[in-house]
Amino acid sequence: MNSQNPVIQVDGLSRTYRDVPALTDVTFSLQPGIICGLLGRNGAGKTTLMRMLTGQEFPSAGSTRVFGENPVENSRVLQKMCFVSEGQRYPDGYQARHVLAGAPWFFADWDAAFADDLVEKFRLPLRRDVRKLSRGQQSALGVILGLASRAPVTIFDEPYLGLDAVARHTFYDTLLADYAERPRTILLSTHLIDEVSNLLEHVLVLDEGRLLLDQSAESLRGSASAVAGRAGDVDSFAEGRQVLHRDTLGGLATVTISGRLSAADHRAAAAAGLEIAPVSFQQLIVDLTTPSSPRTAAASVVYE
């Protein structure tokens, strides 16, 4: 389908801190110009992966290529990337206006007028010590940097801590509008899956340092269904299908089935008196990354 060279290529990437593995044998590639979600629980390895993509961390094994090159201390690559990390630190006495004034040195495509616009939108105080800004204002500064950098590869790591719902939607709307005009690669790590799922074109899910899912958001949406009814009927319907999860209540059962159901499946279920409900994007990710439950084991069989 897409014959372009991948903008990000990760092969067998592993990172171990002392004896603790943070990432294990992660392999994927991203086509340019898409918005990709990096999802997973805390400690799944999202930040480690993002730091390695931006050359701030060395792999223990494997390789990272961005624009076909190793990003570590590579200014050609790094000036085309912007990494908005959670809790970015700045020198003493640094104000937001200093951060914005310095941005053109780091980002080749920096748009100062767009940044001014965003400062208004997010009501960011420019002449206050960055350390004295609220958590939400610091996040707004990060979001402004990320958007106005117009970097061909822009990486947001949980960019909205402390941002209220209004500011988050300002972020989503601005991201979408600017992306529509200037498509670029956006990698976004987030816990607010329901809020961003419609913005995503591709999804990477990390679980305990391993890549659990690497697929298009559309193919993931609706890829599981919850079937409910009398336990016997539910089980005979589920027979031969991949069951991610099963709950029972007395003689009733609900199973989460992986794979799309056909119109004939729907008719068969209706005829058997079974109810079929969609499983939300967020619920599916939660199901897939919940530990020590049978569904995780089943899921990794399906998606590996």
């Binding site: 918005i35 709307d173 979408l176 529509a180 498509p183 419609n198 074109e201 958001a217």
Partner: peptide
């Protein structure tokens, strides 16, 4: 459409 429904333009 993408902006109005807050969805990815490719979608």
């Amino acid at each position: 459409f993408a902006m109005f429904y807050r969805i990815n333009p490719a979608t």
